[in-house]
Amino acid sequence: MTVPVIGVLALQGDVREHVAALTGVGAQARPVRRPEELDAVDGLVIPGGESTTISKLTDIFELREPIDKRIAAGLPVYGSCAGMIMLAAEVLDGRPDQRGFAGIEMTVRRNAFGRQVDSFEAPVALAGVDGGPFHAVFIRAPWVERVGAGVDVLGEVTDGPAAGRIVAVRQGNLVATSFHPELTGDLRLHRYFVDLVRAA
């Protein structure tokens, strides 16, 4: 795999920004809306967006089972914000019928930092990513309330009222962040993910 093919789940959300970031670090990025498009990718990104909408469209367009199967078979997946919610085994403050891909053993709380007026930017350092803290953008973001034994915590909020909250995790080939590196032009996390796909 010289140039990994990475899909971006394109049911709703900031798909274009992830495609641009993945392309910027040398991957071949393409939108995924159909099961046959999923078959052709080496890794998948679940973008920021509205998790209730993405969850619903995942069922309607029959992507849930194929994605679950690929995840069980080791497909590397990175989710930002709504994508983190979609990768969580348990979601708090979501709709009762909202379901993720049962990927990472973690409990995530939706809109945990508050409403849009509480959306914020803050520096967050990630374990395993050099070059100083990320300028992290949190938009109606979730946080991770609990992680299982197999989950590595990569980053936490360090200052302000939410100090100590977990906002980046990894379990095997699955990576999730509460914030949106795709909005800032900082490509380090996408490079980290593409390296993970290459090694998988």
């Binding site: 394109a10 049911l11 709703q12 959300g13 900031d14 798909v15 274009r16 920004e17 920021g48 967006g49 509205e50 909408t53 914000c81 709504a82 849009q116 959306s119 953008v137 938009i139 109606r140 949106h180 909005l183």
Partner: peptide, 10 residues
Amino acid sequence: RGMAEMLKGG
């Protein structure tokens, strides 16, 4: 602006 980016395609 980022909030609106998250609504895209919706």
